[in-house]
Nucleic acid binder design. Sequence first.
DNA 1: GAATTGAGAATTTTT
DNA 2: TTCTCAATTC
Length: 715
Amino acid sequence: MPGQHLAGLNPPQQEAVETLSGPLLVLAGAGTGKTRVVTCRMAEIVSRGVSPSAICAVTFTNKAAKEMKERVRKTVRLGKKKLQTMVVSTFHSLGLRILRDHGHHLGLRKGANIADESDQLSIMTDVMRESGLARTVIRPNDARWKVSLWKNQGLRPDDALESAELGVESTLAVAYGRYEAELRRQGLLDFDDLILRPLDLFKEAPQVLRGLQDQWHYLLVDEYQDTNGCQYELIKAIGGARRNICCVGDDDQSIYAWRGADPERVLRFTRDFPGAVVVTLEQNYRSTGLILEGANRLITTNTQRREKKLWSALGRGEPIELYIAEDEKDEVDFVTTRAMLLGQKEAMCWEDCAILFRANSQCRPLEQALRARQIPYKVVGTRSFFDRREVRDLLSFVRLAKNPADDAALLRIVNVPPRGIGKSSIDKVLGWAAEDRASAWSTMKRRADDLPARARDGVRSLEEIVTTIEELARVEGVTPAISWLTEATQYRDHLRQTVDDALELQTRLTIVDELEDTARTLEATSGKASLESFLDTLALREQDFGDKEDQSDGITLLTMHAAKGLEFPYVFIVGMEEGILPHRNSIGSEEDDAPDDRAIEEERRLAYVGVTRARQRLFLSYARERTRFGRTVKRTMSRFLEELGLDTLHVTDSTDDTPADPEVGREMLRKIRSRFSGGGPSNVDSETVTDTKGAPDSGAAAPTKKAAWWESMDD
DNA sequence: GAATTGAGAATTTTT
DNA sequence: TTCTCAATTC
């Protein structure tokens, strides 16, 4: 029964849903119902009798993948089991899956571990030293990014060396080669390998690729504008000759060029896939007319883009507001005061409101101001649970149990908690290992007797721990293995001894608990898990932690990058200044650097993403002067404000007698300011989600509701 | 091994 | 200004 999923869709949306074969590009502007189209299209395919196992959908984030699965499940009438054969995963999960299933054709070790950022960094630091690259010339972290960029573009060490300029770049290309060799030696894969190595595999074992091509007749790629060269090759290979490939994206929202994404890839689609159908979605269901008008004006300044013009049937709405602040303090005051007003006058829920900024450093002053006024807030996308030392420490034991060649894991926990294996012992072992071309762990075990007595005992006890983890996991599962590990290492005691701050200790102990919970949750949903699947799930962040973000409500603080795909009724964007947005590194600031149009265009797209997050009200602000690094500097307003249509904005500043809300006099504002100017408690470190509950007497009591903003990430 | 100190940098970072 | 990182020192 074809066409059963077309109800309620506009004509272009219907066309996208009905075009089932051949290459299809869905140019989905912000807020045009992309997710809806994608899920309906998949439902349509299935309802025409295609097995779900013939469909593969690729996204960038776990959240998007989860969302898509969920929506398809709700749309398609089909048994759960049947539906689960449909692959909906991130690029990285897909790559890893392919490598886990077929990696042996590449001589890939069975237990290859995934290197996290700090592993990458320490390996990079080592190989830089060997290559004679001082960290004053290029910082290891920057080197890591550069190498990652090369890998994203599909450049191997040889290619990089060839294309590199003489000097630092070519030395770095040499270091890149050593970095790769070191990863392999330790049986590690970095994130980029998860995309790059499957391409090697397809060359090495074409039958594997053929198998995948036979399996997946329908391919879907989400956020196509963000795909890098490597990811493009991967999907093109799998899409193969069948070319049933549907890419969904918006060139105007391409904001990851600096990570190797090519914003022009969307523009090239019809050349890359001749005969492609292009459907453009322009009706926006999110924002009011005036917001969209501003957004359209802004983005049409860009030259490299597909023509499209968002329109809204939601009415004109309120004008975009601009507040010109005296300084950063005044700007932050404006945001918090305005937010409280909205809470009182328009019954805005805190969770309906977001504050967007360009750089994370802009976050802290906002947090402080919100805390002082006891407005609850949460910060999205800061250092995650997975990057916590406690998690990485404990997982390193597990990694070592799975892959004895993983020197990075060994070095992290060799003496954590202290077991008498000091620096000199470690150096000795590393020396022997290098001579024998063996792994550090095997060498350490084999030659423990050549070490001082205390170190020897330490090695034996570590050996005991590692073997037991492996056995426990194999026989009883991951959960008992992890619980046993924390007990046997007395990791909690170790924390109690080394952390003196009570609050900090509490946080860290909780993290240990949560790691155990994670194992439990994983095994509760999918049965006894192997060490491998446990580690993979964590490394790719495929699992949520305790649904913590769902419980908290409050104003959301996030970067514009993190805001992509989200929407809020009320949006503040702060720091609309030259040097911040567009960022100074994109302006071509250096002496002889010509202004880089492409960089500016990306900043403009970023601003566009920010603006199009707003449903009803949009507040922009900048400061006339700002204290940066201890020095007060004059600021100029962002060129993007002009491009948005300065004359259409409702502009106010601190001296204005008609403050932002025309109905509320300046007196009122002042009153509110002074009422809440008393300092509140401070001293909370931000983690993944910081939730500061407003006290009952805060007077900032906006109503709250349960429906969460992340339920609608429809872009 | 832990604490101290000094230099250098201060975008965004889906996995 | 304020953070990070690594070398130095006790």
